[in-house]
Design a protein around this nucleic acid. Structure first.
Length: 304
DNA sequence: ACCATACTAGGGTCTGAAAC
DNA sequence: GTTTCAGACCCTAGTATGGT
């Protein structure tokens, strides 16, 4: 992730109010990266004191955060071909005393959050990798031991990597009704089905593979994989078989996730949402879906 | 094929503010 | 007090790689 101290993209300024434009003084364009992440500096106490009442809904929160040394961050991920997403929020303080792993009274909430984060990471990987084909690895026998299924996937990946060093994958497990595990992998481009089947059978003996390219444009294919694997990421361990700390999905390490950082100095009246959406429009050409829980925390993407 | 090791990155946890 | 989210920190599962 590339971070730009005290900068912002001035090209998106045309749609901003004067206050917004002022907030972006001193901005400079971040280099030629595909995406941008905006990490803002703490508001100076003097600035916060001047902001009272002016500048819309964001201003009051801006002041309160000032006294806790909070920072603001906007993260833009531009996947190219008119697809991008953006999120904006505060950055909180460092936590003091943590509960032991798995023993928090907020265990359920934390797990829900971990699932959401895993789904976000899955989306970042699939879109960044331009994964547009779905590879399914199945067993003929009823393999209900997840550890064995995970080991088999590892062995399969190692064999494929020997044959195809640049091959990448994002894998999610699914358990069939009979209890057997199998793997769904998002992969990039057309696949050598015979090679993959041969490697999978070297590992598991009697098994099969299936490769499919979802219908629709390339952009739609990527989103199909995001939704499809995301669904199984949540579903796979819903029966409670998942152990503490176990990963919900597997992926190649060599997938670079596009994200870039630009910093801005918060100003009274600055509207973080407007700034973020301008950035998204500039990166992807449109704003499709917007989520927000208040004026200074939200997420948006170019698709619907 | 197996093992050991270094390193990466996902998971668990807590925090912040505003609205209710 | 509860609810909502993402970020930061730390721990550890998992990946990649080299040696046998």
């Amino acid at each position: 992730m590339n971070q730009h101290p005290l900068g912002f993209n001035p090209a998106a300024g045309a749609a901003l109010t004067n206050d917004d434009r002022d907030a972006r003084l001193g901005a400079r364009r971040g280099g030629g990266r595909e995406g941008s992440e905006v990490a803002t500096a703490p508001v100076q106490a003097a600035q916060a004191g001047e902001s009272g009442g002016g500048g819309g809904a964001a201003a009051p929160r801006l002041e309160k955060r000032t006294y806790s040394n909070a920072r603001y961050r906007i993260t833009l991920r531009n996947y190219g071909k008119n697809m991008a997403e953006i999120g904006w929020s505060f950055v909180g303080e460092v936590p003091a005393n943590k509960a032991a792993r798995g023993e928090s009274s907020e265990r359920s909430k934390n797990e829900d959050r971990a699932v959401r984060r895993a789904k976000s990471r899955l989306r970042h990987l699939i879109l960044s990798a331009n994964a547009n084909h779905l590879l399914t690895l199945t067993y003929r026998e009823n393999v209900t031991d997840f550890k064995r299924a995970a080991d088999d996937l590892n062995r399969f990946v190692r064999k494929v990597k020997v044959s195809l060093p640049d091959w990448i994958y994002i894998a999610v497990a699914e358990q069939q009704a009979r209890g057997a595990w199998h793997w769904h992998l998002a992969v990039r481009g057309r696949q050598d089905v015979d090679l993959l089947r041969a490697h999978w059978r070297e590992v598991v003996g009697d098994g099969n593979i299936d490769v499919s390219a979802p219908k629709g444009s390339r952009k739609d294919q990527r989103l199909f994989l995001v939704r499809y694997l995301g669904k199984y990421l949540v579903k796979a361990f819903a029966t409670g078989q998942r152990s503490l700390n176990a990963h919900r999905f597997r992926a190649s390490r060599s997938i670079p996730v596009c994200a870039e950082s630009v910093s801005i100095v918060p100003q009274p009246g600055m509207n973080l949402e407007d700034i973020s959406l301008d950035q998204l429009r500039e990166a992807a050409g449109s704003v499709g879906f917007v989520w927000k829980n208040d004026s200074l925390c939200g997420w948006a993407c170019s698709w619907k």
